[in-house]
């Protein structure tokens, strides 16, 4: 699904954001990406949806490579991904329903199918009754659910979430996390950047920890090493 091979990313003014990072995420996997602010989590996510290109190395997502992808093919990649942000990124002047429909309209989905798909996505996130509400009329948790519905409406193979619970209270955080688990359970891979250690501790998903642009811990690698040690 995702493969990073010796990826480095330098920003002209900020310097190195990632150094020699390699990891992969399999289909249907749930992976936490954690680390302090500035550790490189968001850079990894941006490289996944090709908002940024690596300075060195290769990023492969769903069969597309950062080395060979053309600018005009990036939308094709993004249509296979769902992207969720800490600040929801909803259009304030459109209802929840319209915000979700927007994701289908911009990719030219047949009009007849839109209402049905939107209704299904809003039901999935538990917001069918608030379809006609504007973002300002919804709580933070509900706004994030709308954003998740928008990310889900295209049936993505991978959901990328950048601190999706960063702006939410404890209760809303639990609700959103539960929703992401359900989405993963239905077969969608989830890569969630977070520094909420509580969530990470309460689940047994794979965790990759970054520090100053390098992977300092990967629970999958640690488990593999433990198994190898045990085998010896």
């Amino acid at each position: 699904m995702i493969r990073f091979t010796r990826v480095s990313k330098d920003y002209p003014r900020l310097g190195a954001a990632l150094s020699n990072v390699s990891f992969s995420v399999a289909k249907g996997e749930f992976v936490f990406l954690t680390g302090a602010s500035g550790a490189g989590k968001s850079t990894i996510l941006k490289l996944i949806y090709m908002e940024e290109r690596p300075t060195n190395g290769e990023v492969r997502v769903g069969g597309m490579s950062s080395v060979t992808i053309r600018r005009r093919d990036v939308p094709k990649l993004r249509r296979r991904l769902g992207i969720v942000f800490q600040d929801f990124r909803l259009l304030e002047d459109r209802t929840a329903e319209a915000n979700v429909a927007f994701a289908l309209e911009v990719i030219g989905a047949p009009r007849a199918t839109i209402a049905n798909k939107v209704s299904r996505a809003l039901t999935q996130v538990g917001l069918a009754s608030k379809a006609a509400s504007f973002p300002r009329e919804l709580s933070g948790g509900e706004q994030q659910r709308v954003a998740i519905a928008r990310a889900l409406v295209n049936d993505p193979v991978l959901l990328v979430a950048d601190e999706p619970t960063g702006n939410l209270d404890e209760r809303a955080t639990r609700g959103v996390f539960q929703l992401l688990r359900e989405i993963n359970a239905s077969g969608t891979a989830v890569l969630m950047a977070t520094h909420n250690l509580d969530i990470i501790r309460r689940s047994d998903y794979r965790t990759i920890e970054l520090n100053r642009g390098q992977i300092v811990f990967d629970s999958a690698e640690a488990a593999k090493a433990a198994i190898e040690r045990f085998a010896e």
Binding site: Y49, R72, P75, R78, R89, A103, V106, I107
Partner: peptide, 14 residues
């Protein structure tokens, strides 16, 4: 610009 960035994130072509 916000609307444009959202459009692009959800896969709109230029």
């Amino acid at each position: 610009s916000r609307e444009i960035s959202i459009m692009r994130l959800v896969g709109a072509t230029d």
